[in-house]
């Protein structure tokens, strides 16, 4: 290895360490036995243990981590998939027909700029009236609203990037609108769908506010459930257990991101026109 390479790797290593420090600190804390957390602030664990994880993964009468994981999975899937289903036809209509481009598009995209808390009170009343309070569907629906702007933005860009000749070719080939959308436009937008899904799922999974407001027992998501572990045995904060539950809660989106990352990049339209 040349000296330039060595230097470069050293810089990368330092940067990776600094940026991931909070995660490393959490992981290390999760591996320390209860007494050591307060006594030993270093990153070196003197007596590594899985005790905290065992506590987290054990179902008690008050806490059930599997229940929270399942709630989060269902709600996040609804929150990630539903916006794509809604936004895809809308994105096509906006790009190709100009539907809603002047008013609807900026309005929806600007939803992201609003502090979500202003939805809380009306939403709580609506959910109470419709029986959606403390349901996974109810939580998933509001997460879908949260994700809609990003989904629309990404899919609008994806459709706009497709050569219009492909759609014209399919019209000449006899395809009416539904077949053209499903067989030609949709597959070509796949990278955008993957990106939308990954970001949407992660956003939905990590959402805390609506989970806290809209659920009490049956549909408590992982983020809210994790907070229950902080004071497991009354008294002070159980730092080791809290760290362990954070690691457990962070794993699913992390794994999803790693698995899907490769698919986010790369264009589908190579070889369509010219070349």
């Amino acid at each position: 290895m040349r000296r330039g390479d060595l230097l470069r790797w050293a810089v990368f290593a330092v940067a990776a360490f600094v940026m991931n420090f909070p995660i490393l600190a959490t992981l290390v804390t999760a591996l320390k036995p209860p007494g050591e957390v307060m006594r030993n602030p270093s990153l070196w664990v003197q007596a590594p243990t899985l005790e905290n994880f065992a506590t987290v993964l054990t179902v008690s009468d008050r806490l059930n981590v599997y229940h929270y994981l399942w709630n989060s999975t269902v709600a996040a899937l609804i929150g990630a998939v539903l916006p794509m289903v809604v936004a895809f036809p809308l994105a096509w209509a906006m790009v190709r027909r100009g539907v809603g481009r002047a008013v609807l598009f900026p309005t929806v995209v600007n939803l992201r700029a609003l502090p979500l808390i202003i939805f809380a009170i009306p939403l709580y009343m609506m959910y109470a009236a419709t029986g959606l309070l403390d349901t996974r569907l109810g939580l998933g629906l509001i997460l879908a609203i949260v994700n809609l702007p990003l989904a629309l933005l990404l899919l609008v860009n994806a459709v706009a990037d497709l050569p219009v000749e492909l759609e014209e070719a399919s019209r000449m080939d006899g395809a009416r609108l539904p077949r053209m959308l499903v067989r030609v436009v949709l597959p070509l937008c796949r990278p955008a769908f993957v990106t939308t899904f990954v970001f949407g799922f992660i956003t939905a999974w990590n959402e805390f506010l609506f989970g806290l407001i809209l659920t009490t027992r049956d549909a408590v998501p992982m983020t809210v459930g994790a907070s229950f572990f902080f004071a497991t045995s009354g008294g002070g904060v159980q730092w080791g257990v809290a760290a362990a539950v954070m690691i457990v809660a962070a794993l699913p989106p992390l794994v999803l991101g790693l698995v899907m990352y490769r698919r986010i990049t790369g264009s589908m339209v190579a070889g369509a026109v010219k070349g």
Binding site: L166, V184, L188, G271
Partner: peptide
Amino acid sequence: LAMVFQSYALYPH
């Protein structure tokens, strides 16, 4: 009718 486009417009997928 059938049309051959300048850019060919083949379905890349």
